[in-house]
């Protein structure tokens, strides 16, 4: 599904990703871990097409297509979803109209008719319950006045409604209490399927107790320096990153 080869990315001339290779097949969950400043969030930004990131070398293939040639919305239409680390507020635009516009935009691209207001309302309400948000949040402005935890649940709500093929969660677990972490993990686990791939970017092993990854990668200095199974995360929890980054340096 996703094949990243020798990816080099710069921001304002500074190299952040430096020869990253990563291959993910449909149905897999991969965790990306690594120290601060290793390039984890840059990877999320480049996959979703944020401006200001320049790919200087290498390639990203998504279902055989060059992902870097697509606009952010074109990537969204093809099933790429990013759960933001810091979700922004859009005052006055209700969550409901935002969600429906998004869902309909994706449906339109697939040649499907727009949702009916009533059906969508039911679905949105049910999904709200699933992520532990009161349905009143549908009437509020997008992330407007939401607490940190509510914003993360709202990202999850969007993800569940948009049913992406490739979901990238950028530190969705940071700042969450144990209960909220459980909700996020349950949400992600319900999305797990043979057609979907999920990338979890995280600092903490604790998320991986709830969402068991197929592969764990350690990112450092802009490239993957170690890959392994779920047990690698436990090893990192115990030893930290030092033993790996020193070895790689």
């Amino acid at each position: 599904m996703l094949k990243i080869s020798n990816l080099h990315v710069t921001i304002a001339g500074e190299t952040i990703l430096n020869g990253l290779d990563l291959e993910i097949a449909a149905g897999e969950v991969h965790a990306i871990m690594g120290p601060n400043g290793s390039g984890k969030s840059t990877l999320a930004a480049v996959l979703s097409g944020r401006e200001g990131y320049e790919v200087t070398e290498g390639s990203i293939e998504y279902f055989g297509e060059d992902l870097t040639a697509l606009e952010p919305e074109e990537r969204a239409w093809r099933g790429v979803f990013l759960a933001f680390q810091y979700p922004v507020e859009i005052p006055g635009v209700t969550n409901m109209e935002f969600l429906r516009a998004s869902v309909d935009a994706l449906r339109a691209h697939r040649g499907e008719a727009a949702t009916s207001a009533v059906d969508f309302m039911k679905l949105a309400r049910a999904t709200c319950k699933q992520v532990g948000l009161d349905t009143d949040f549908l009437k509020r402005g997008v992330n407007e006045g939401f607490s940190g935890g509510e914003k993360k649940r709202n990202e999850l709500l969007q993800m569940l409604l948009l049913e992406p093929k490739l979901a990238v969660l950028d530190e969705t677990d940071s700042g969450l209490d144990i209960d909220a972490l459980g909700v996020v993990a349950d949400g992600v686990n319900t999305l797990r399927s043979a057609e979907r791939a999920i990338i979890l970017i995280t600092h903490y092993q604790r998320l991986l107790n709830h969402i068991v990854p197929d592969r764990v990668h350690v990112l450092s200095g802009g490239r993957i320096i170690r890959s392994g199974g779920k047990e690698l995360a436990l090893e990192l929890e115990e030893k930290g990153y030092g033993w790996l980054t020193e070895a790689a340096a």
């Binding site: 239409w77 933001f84 935002f98 516009a101 935009a105 948009l162």
Partner: peptide
């Protein structure tokens, strides 16, 4: 960017 990432 949030809007575009969501397909708008």
């Amino acid at each position: 960017f949030l809007c575009r990432q969501r397909g708008l």
